[in-house]
Amino acid sequence: MTVTVRDIRPETPADTDAFARIRRRTLPYMISTGASLAYDLRHIHPDAHYRPLLAVEDGEPIGTAQVGLVYDSPEPGHAFLNVCVDPDRVGRGAGSLLVRTAEEFLRGLGATRLHTWVPDAPAPRAFAEKRGYRPRRSAHFLRLDLALGQLPPLQPPPPGVDLRTGTDFGDDPRPLFALDAETIEDEPSDVDREFTDYEAWLKETWNHPLLSRELTSVTVVDGRPVAFSAARTDGTRYGTVMTGTLRAYRGRGFAKLAKNHSLHRARAAGLTEAFTGNDVGNGPMLAINKWFGYEICATEVQYVRELR
């Protein structure tokens, strides 16, 4: 049995579908499809040098890697590589070959610090540490059963506050870009980001095929968007990719208001599972998700390797 690594062929559905299938098997709490991967390859910022890889054993895809530079960080040299191997194909060398190929590629781009997310389990953590990666921070994945779970009842917004959906901003989404840009700056992370490229945001976020503008909720105060809950869906599952509030409006329940309305609409649309993720240090958001009924379903640890 021979394992090789090659680039994804974005024009080949068999490749993109295999990539998505392996990621769903290893990360069932993350929403991805072959079509969304093909879209990413066509529209992600060129400075990211995004390069998804497939590990193939005798013609059968058995592993994947997402590889690229953190192009919007003010500090150069940050890069990412996230490896997934089909659980039924572990131990055949696919993970090691994917890591070596990714590291060689990133080193050639001048990367000096590599970030990777690893399942919080003994074998994956040992795999990372054996290759010189060191643990930094952790994050939880959370799941909510929309079919059987009880959501908090809907509450009418207070005076001066409106609830809208992403579709209401179809003609001019720039106010949502400003909202997203400020909230993402406060996300717990080891990498600072300068979220200033509106055109890139349109391609990578607003026009992404998994983003549901209908299920995305926005809290508006006196005509200004101040909080939001952005949703993605593959048609059966729902995922919150960002929930946040402008700094000046925090502590007033506006993000919770937006997310509750989004979850209720998702359940009414027939979606059965809701997923989200939070850094373990993000106490306020973890508390909000616990209030909704989310339960932790998995934990990952971010590992970092210095290449200097």
Score class of each variant (00 low, 15 high):
Ile44Pro: 00
Thr216Leu: 06
Val118Gln: 00
Ala268Asp: 15
Val90Ala: 12
Ser229Phe: 01
Leu98Ser: 03
Phe228Gln: 15
Tyr198Asp: 13
Arg224His: 06
His140Asp: 14
Val3Asp: 02
Leu211Asn: 06
Leu307Pro: 10
His140Arg: 13
Arg137Met: 12
Gly160Asp: 08
Lys259Asn: 03
Ala94Asp: 03
Phe80Ser: 13
Gly293Ser: 14
Asp7Glu: 15
Phe169Trp: 06
Cys84Glu: 12
Thr165Leu: 07
Met285Thr: 10
Arg136Ala: 13
Val301Cys: 00
Gly235Ile: 02
Ala18Cys: 04
Thr240Met: 13
Pro159Gly: 08
Thr12Trp: 09
Ala14Trp: 02
Asp192Tyr: 07
Pro173Ser: 12
Asn278Trp: 01
Gly91Asn: 08
Ile288Asn: 04
His45Val: 08
Val85Thr: 13
Arg9Glu: 14
Ser32Gly: 11
Ala287Met: 06
Pro225Tyr: 05
Arg51Cys: 07
Ala147Pro: 06
Pro76Met: 01
Phe19Gly: 01
Ala121Glu: 10
Leu246Asp: 10
Asp15Tyr: 05
Met285Phe: 12
Asp7Asn: 15
Gly239Tyr: 06
Arg308Ile: 11
Thr216Arg: 04
Phe127Cys: 02
Thr167Asn: 11
Phe141Gln: 12
Gly244Asn: 05
Val118Phe: 00
Glu185Met: 08
His261Gly: 05
Arg237Pro: 04
Ala200Gln: 15
Leu176Tyr: 01
Trp291Arg: 11
Asp222Val: 02
Ala231Trp: 03
Phe141Asp: 12
Leu151Gly: 08
Arg143Asn: 03
Pro159Asp: 13
Arg24Pro: 01
Leu263Thr: 10
Leu81Pro: 04
Arg305Lys: 15
Val5Pro: 00
Asp172Ser: 07
Val99Pro: 00
Phe228Ile: 06
Asp279Val: 05
Gln66Val: 08
Gly281Ser: 02
Arg25Val: 07
Ala178Met: 12
Ser262Gly: 15
Arg247Asn: 07
Leu114Asn: 00
Pro124Lys: 02
Asn260Tyr: 00
Pro61Asp: 01
Tyr303Asn: 00
Asp15Phe: 01
Ile44Cys: 12
Pro225Met: 08
Asp172Tyr: 04
Arg164Pro: 01
Thr299Val: 14
Asp120Arg: 01
Asn282Ala: 08
Thr64Tyr: 02
Ala287Gly: 04
Pro124Ile: 02
Gly132Leu: 03
Thr240Asp: 10
Leu307Gly: 06
Tyr133Val: 05
